[in-house]
Design a protein around this nucleic acid. Structure first.
Lengths: 123, 123
DNA sequence: CAAAAGGTCAACCATTTGGTTGAATATGGC
DNA sequence: GCCATATTCAACCAAATGGTTGACCTTTTG
């Protein structure tokens, strides 16, 4: 009975974590931000720079990414640094891989994909 | 120049396709439906049966999954069959795998994960 | 100390989302 | 032909989302 409740809680928690991750990934601005952070950690202002929306909007996006566990933010002085947290994507990735065995993807393919995106990610 | 436009269109299309896929995956009901379809193709009514929401609501969820390309629907007689389309998840999976090399996930792990979900997916 | 820089907060707004209900549109069975 | 079954459509609703602006707080710099 206790186990049942624990499993239920776990299931609910799992659901909501996947909810947060996928919902965070559903927005192109946020995916773009993640791509940027792939290259290096960045300050909030620098993350915002290439976008045409307000700093406040980007700040919100970063909060959503943080709550989803996809990035972490650490304040040093007056600057808040954003850091990619690739582990958080693993859970979602595991969930997805249950649907057909995708052959392990090599980085080359991913880079080719990024290159193909071109304008959108080329920075 | 033509190539530039083509790439731009491609980038936009790519974005929206990923948007649709991730947004579709962000809802627990829809993920649950995908899990169900993992076992077998199902009619809309049968998909709706375990859920506590209206048939119309499930019908909408199925439309969203279809537009995201995650399932296909084929009408035979008065019954509309829903079929998992695992390939559609590959693109999103590829995108995600760019963020850290996840070791190839074995099915056992996924089944263990499903088992752990227990109540939510045990049918 | 005063001013500038880095971020967030709060209030607001339009749009989208996820659900409902009741009517409508096939299709199948008797 | 008629009724039940399978599914969608349309109108509606509450809540969430993604954006804005202006005020605010904190830290650095001159």
């Amino acid at each position: 009975m206790v186990d049942l409740l624990r499993d239920l809680r776990l299931a609910i928690a799992m659901h909501s974590r996947l909810d947060l991750a996928f919902a965070a990934l559903a927005d192109p601005t946020r995916r773009e931000i993640l791509s940027m952070l792939l290259e290096d950690d960045m300050a909030v202002t620098d993350v915002a720079e290439p976008f045409e929306m307000s700093l406040a909007a980007i700040s919100k996006h970063l909060t959503i990414l943080t709550r989803a566990g996809l990035i972490t933010q650490e304040k040093r002085g007056r600057v808040k640094w954003c850091k990619l947290e690739p582990d958080a994507m693993r859970e979602a990735s595991v969930w997805m891989q249950g649907f057909g065995q995708f052959e392990p993807v090599n980085l080359d393919a991913f880079e080719a994909y990024l290159a193909e995106l071109g304008l959108a990610t080329d920075r």
